[in-house]
Design a protein around this nucleic acid. Structure first.
Lengths: 142, 142
DNA sequence: AGCATATTTAGAATGATTCTAATTCCTTGT
DNA sequence: ACAAGGAATTAGAATCATTCTAAATATGCT
């Protein structure tokens, strides 16, 4: 059987690259993330996956999300100690956390900005990754 | 009685500015943070405060740390969902999280870098704060 | 001194996540 | 097709950091 979409094909590919299996649960979790990119929590994902797959368990949602993060198909994002949120945006981007609404917005980072930021590091610090989080309020037009 | 040091004087001042009281517990917690600036967790602070004040409770440590954060004398720092760490460094700085050792290093930010970073935001986003976290490994010379 | 309010305290409760152990589901070798 | 072995899923228990609760203490003020 041929993959039914680019994204699930990509998922199957990434999984097998890592020696992991493509499963219905992983497909559903990933499709849920792609469908509504509002940085859902594991509980959110659980709720959205259930209609499609009523027997899925919360533990599986956690397992699958962890797997997707390992495969670099999804980024985990944390604000303070709130529940982890998941984001399928793979471009380099920062996050803007709206303190009024709780909404999270992706802020694409122009090439070079990350390098500029990394340039503040003393030579003996070797950064594998940089995370930038903005907090404030956003005027999203009505 | 006159304050016994600049820092506790500063603490008493900041507290009363916010309509809060200076208490022995708050003084001890703050002095613990100033004494060893290694980004301790609440449990770490609790352990370090106990010798000086054996009856202090963990709940009080949480309360006092929260109070100090409210007064802007201390910053709370989070890495993923690990326990919150506390940092009395008030200069604008980023954090470098060493993935091998778990150590956290302050990275002072030259004036202007935060503005450069903020400049990537679309006009309708108004950032009250920016947080920058590096992850990687640090060669701290022996 | 007496009162109102802040603060501290111990322990219970919470919430997100991880762990455990049992089951189910493939995949591969025969 | 069939069995073995490993991978994945599942329900529920366990964990961990933190917050809440209610009672006890301390403090500042009139």
């Amino acid at each position: 059987m041929v993959s039914n979409s680019d994204s699930s094909g990509a998922l199957a590919q990434r999984l097998s690259d890592s020696g992991l299996r493509s499963t219905p649960q992983r497909e559903v979790i990933y499709s849920v993330l792609l469908k509504k990119r509002d940085h859902p929590t594991a509980e959110d994902v659980f709720a959205r996956a259930k209609p499609e797959m009523p027997m899925i368990s919360l533990a599986t949602v956690y397992n699958c999300l962890e797997t997707l993060v390992q495969c670099n198909l999804v980024r985990a994002v944390n604000f303070e100690r709130g529940p982890t949120r998941y984001c399928p945006n793979l471009r380099p981007h920062a996050h803007f956390h709206d303190e009024q609404t709780g909404a999270t917005h992706d802020i694409d980072l122009p090439a070079g900005v990350l390098d500029q930021v990394k340039s503040v590091l003393p030579v003996n610090f070797d950064a594998a990754s940089v995370e930038i989080i903005f907090r404030g309020k956003a005027r999203t037009e009505t």
